[in-house]
Design a protein around this nucleic acid. Structure first.
Ligand SMILES: [Zn+2]
Ligand SMILES: [Zn+2]
Ligand SMILES: [Zn+2]
Ligand SMILES: [Zn+2]
Lengths: 162, 162
DNA sequence: GTCAAAGATGTTATAGTATAACGGTTATTT
DNA sequence: AAATAACCGTTATACTATAACATCTTTGAC
């Protein structure tokens, strides 16, 4: 039994952040890409919570930290982080969230809570393979999967988030 | 064996359009909603091709037809058509496409060709149920599924679209 | 038929998301 | 050190979507 998809609200999130940064360094080293201070800052801001965050909210947080950046700055960092599989874009929210297992390629499925807006990343091969199979049955060559499920997380079903 | 997911480029698309309009009338009647001239025009424009179309492209087409509309006009029509399950929004494209079976509720999966930009709508219960099951296993109450697969359709794999 | 309520549309302005283009700086390689 | 490539700053602009308020139309009750 692995980790639950949604970690409890009260988990030690500093561990998540530290792990994410450590992973990022390894991944970039392996990829021969540069995790510059700016890119790392954006990644850290994304990992502040298990909630996707929009580009302009990131921008605002950077301003609060005294880093006067313009939109292209944050979009470039986002592009880099996506290319290095360190973050995912949640299409249904126009927002970005940290990847849980950036060290290996994978197709994810996202559970998006409509109440608390937290996101959980599933990595269910049965689903991704079934999708690929159905696509191939239609003669379609699958390149990328976007799977996002909206609903209510367990805590929100119990009314723990108002 | 039902229809193929992607109809051949050369099929008689007038049949698709007529069928879509006939379906729309039935659905709205049943729902007690009004398919006004404007809403019908937007639906027709969406059904001009099996390609998702953006709101502002719709707007432009309406202008070409002499209908001087502003963005809220088209967005309202899109909202109505979505509420009546006559169209779907493709999140990964910010675009809209006609629904193939608006007469019954369903969870769809979309195949989006990156080359010719056509879209096919699958309605595979095995997939939607497996997604629901996985979500529930994580304690998540599933309300809506967004499943979009990017890749190459059969014709484009054969180089038929440049 | 009249009238009130609800629904639909028109209009203007603005919010939110993303990229183009160009120039300058920093890091890496030769 | 010079050449190259990668990265970053800056300005402007494109693209997507909604807020707010006025007007018109349809519907249903009386
Ligand atoms: Zn955490
Ligand atoms: Zn929640
Ligand atoms: Zn057709
Ligand atoms: Zn194609």
């Amino acid at each position: 039994m692995g980790k639950p998809a949604f970690l409890p609200s009260q988990h030690d999130h500093q561990v998540c952040i530290r792990q994410a940064l450590a992973n990022a360094k390894v991944v970039c080293e392996r990829n021969g890409t540069r995790l510059t201070a700016q890119r790392q800052q954006v990644l850290e801001l994304i990992w502040q919570e298990h909630r996707p965050i929009g580009a302009y909210d990131l921008l605002e947080k950077m301003h609060e930290l005294g880093h006067k950046a313009a939109p292209p700055t944050v979009y470039r960092a986002l592009e880099f982080l996506q290319e290095n599989a360190l973050i995912h874009r949640i299409e249904s929210l126009n927002a970005y969230t940290g990847c849980n297992h950036p060290e290996h390629p994978h197709a994810s499925q996202f559970l998006v809570c409509q109440q608390c807006r937290r996101v959980a990343e599933l990595e269910c091969e049965a689903i991704s393979e079934q999708l690929s199979r159905q696509a191939e049955a239609a003669g379609f060559a699958c390149r990328q999967q976007t799977v996002e499920i909206s609903g209510l997380c367990a805590e929100c079903q119990r009314g723990e988030h108002g």
